[in-house]
Design a protein around this nucleic acid. Structure first.
Lengths: 212, 212
DNA sequence: CCCCCGAACCTAGGCCCTCTAGGCAGCAGC
DNA sequence: GCTGCTGCCTAGAGGGCCTAGGTTCGGGGG
């Protein structure tokens, strides 16, 4: 039979495309094999199974996403950087819903920890926040707030959670503005009576990026 | 054979429990039937299929969730109400991960629109924001920001997205504080040159709740 | 009390999916 | 041209969703 020239990379790339078309949870090895004109059992020489395929798509998408974000954030600071980050994030999530969904799966922390995408994401996120003059643990708290808001907003928008007539893009701009004011007026530790312990230590393990 | 006494309600309730145990995406009709000591084909007299089961679990969970939230928010206003809402939201999401995941699936908008849970969620959310003195379209924008942040934060926490050593609960408190300051310093329309149209009309279709 | 009828549960089977075991054929190097 | 690796194959087990049609249980009317 004519050899198609399968490889792990080609499978992962095709799976990412398929995910954007039919949804991440609907990518199946069968469908992927069909797309290559090949039997599903043939894929197992290149990919250990569905799970490995999924995590490889997740890492691919995480890398793509942080590259786009980094390109937009580069050279900007403060509110400009925040807006660039936010818009690039949302643009990727909307343009590549399947890949974006992939970035949200649970991945073996050890495997994720030494993925370059994660390291880059952490660097860029923390770097973007440096202009706001926060220090640990507020930095980590702010990163979590941003990641949560960006993800939740895009997830709700993608699943049709926003039904009101209001334009989503305009709402998004306002949300980013609101996050900016939240960051500039960040609730500092007011040393009240018996304040929280709040270990203001070193960065330790930085918060990671979308490819969790 | 001994009749087990199946019914749509019992199936949905059991599916919700199963979802909390094994994850929402892992509830299968087969597993549900097994749990009742019954063949999977027997479930089709009570439930049209997997999809209907899922959306019924989603509506159940949405109702439970907004009930808990309403109980906590009742009698509070301003920042107290926000904190009560947020904490009840997160508590439900962490205590019932499967049910919570169910609330995030895409549901037929027509079906969702006349679900009492959705109406209640919209009422309570908008009511909670009334103290911040916002008017449309800022109200809708603020609702979207809150929903996005709450959902994204809980989703990331649930899927293990927060790896840093920082206590998540403390981060959450800070995030809610930050949202409060964002709401109190909400970016108003500064009528600059050629400002956005910004139809400041009536509430129209209010934003709906977690049971999207 | 009995019968009867509808509902509750069953078996059988089709289709799709994942994954394993083992076979054959095309391409590289000798 | 031969050899051997490996890319792709067939065969098959196991599970999930769902339909069609059979059987038996339980309650209500005669």
């Amino acid at each position: 039979m004519a050899r198609v020239g399968l490889s792990g990379e080609r499978l992962v790339a095709a799976a990412a495309e398929l995910a954007d078309e039919v949804g991440f949870e609907n990518v199946s090895l069968s469908a992927l094999a069909r797309r290559f004109g090949v039997k599903d059992a043939s894929l197992y020489s290149h990919v250990r199974g569905l799970q490995e395929l999924r995590t490889r798509v997740a890492l691919l998408a995480g890398g793509e996403m942080i590259d786009r974000i980094a390109a937009e954030v580069a050279g900007r600071a403060g509110k400009d950087a925040l807006r660039a980050f936010a818009d690039a994030y949302r643009a990727y999530a909307l343009a590549h819903p399947g890949r974006y969904a992939a970035t949200q799966i649970r991945v073996d922390p050890a495997l994720a920890a030494d993925s370059p995408a994660m390291r880059r994401t952490a660097e860029i996120t923390y770097g973007m926040l440096r202009g706001y003059g926060l220090s640990e643990p507020d930095l980590t708290d702010a990163v979590r707030l941003l990641r949560g808001t960006f993800h939740g907003y895009c997830a709700l928008e993608a699943t049709g959670g926003f039904n009101a007539a209001r334009d989503v893009r305009a709402s998004w701009d306002k949300a980013v503005d609101a996050l900016h004011t939240a960051l500039t007026h960040w609730p500092r530790e007011t040393p009240g009576p018996s304040g929280t312990p709040g270990a203001s230590g070193t960065p330790e393990t930085p918060e990671e990026g979308p490819a969790a």
